[in-house]
Design a protein around this nucleic acid. Structure first.
Lengths: 186, 186
DNA sequence: GTCTATAGAGTGATAGAC
DNA sequence: GTCTATCACTCTATAGAC
């Protein structure tokens, strides 16, 4: 029996893509097996909790990525203006200029939202909080910073919906450009 | 056998709610049968094409509602300022202040997007076009009107995602209020 | 020998189609 | 209601690393 040693973390990217493309319900184990190249044995070895644990692991990885790459810089940077510009650039890259959807946003709209409520809520709460901090250090008052960060996160999610709905990544890029203008104005 | 005469159109609201709550894949025929009160026989009598035809009929009904209640007034009203205000009010009512998601937006994010591509694309295209017309009559130049309407539709979709993600309808109402301000400024 | 990664036949339940 | 396909999942077996 071939033994291609792998570990849990190795299959998370493929797992994420399957969930992105088919949703939680639509991602069958057959599909997951095909895309990860793993049999059910391996899958259940890595994720004894089945599909739910697989999705949870994917969400946790996304959360960790955003925390490290986006939220922490927003919170800690000495230069909030630069941190916000970096956020927009990282977001453009992460979502492949609108060709890739936000798995957490997609989960939020489905019946999956309640199953992963903590992760879904926590992700957006952290994003808004981190961006709000940067905006305050940029000179906004607390109320304005909260409103603006809520608006920004919503604008990104909405642009992802629209870009995919209309199958036009340019929609996402235009939205990011407008958002950049709005976030630069104090 | 009781014969409660009903027709296709009667079951569309219930059908819409099931798809909203469970998504296309998650809405099983058992669930649909329970919520509509119809057996599989009746369902296949009304919708010979099965689930796909059911979803298509729901999308068509939503499209018709928006065309009549939102898009047409935006295009035809003599008073674009009032038409835009009416749009925001109708949207708030339709989405129950953020407690109800946009089925078309949800479909756009899933694998269902390709299946119903024409409806999904057409819905958002019509919305943007209608709002853009109202904005031009309000005094915006074409480019600004197009950008602003794209921004507005995205803001609404994003607010729906966020409101549901964070389980807080107030997010949606705040977003609509900010959007109202932005659309009033020429 | 033990342990971990693997494969996949087999389980009952439930899916959508008709 | 009946059909067949497919679902998530279980379980046994096995290979190789120690």
């Amino acid at each position: 029996m071939a033994r291609v040693v792998s570990e849990r973390a190795d299959v998370l990217p493929a797992l994420g893509e399957v969930f992105r493309e088919h949703g939680f319900e639509g991602a069958s184990l057959a599909l997951i097996g095909a895309r990860t190249g793993l049999g059910k044995g391996s899958l259940y070895h890595f994720f004894p909790g089945g599909k739910e644990e697989m999705a949870e692991a994917v969400l946790a990885e996304i959360d960790a990525w955003f925390t490290h790459e986006i939220f922490a810089p927003l919170r800690e940077s000495k230069d909030p203006r630069q941190a916000i510009a970096a956020m927009l650039q990282a977001i453009d890259a992460y979502f492949r200029s609108g060709r890739r959807i936000c798995l957490i946003g997609a989960f939020a709209l489905g019946a999956t939202r309640d199953r992963f409520a903590a992760r879904v809520d926590g992700y957006f709460a952290a994003w808004e909080e981190a961006l709000g901090q940067a905006l305050m250090r940029l000179g906004h008052r607390k109320k304005a910073a909260v409103a603006l960060s809520e608006d920004a996160v919503a604008a990104i999610q909405g642009a992802l919906v629209l870009a995919r709905a209309r199958n036009d990544p340019a929609i996402f890029r235009r939205a990011l450009a407008r958002l950049g203008d709005r976030l630069r104005t104090v």
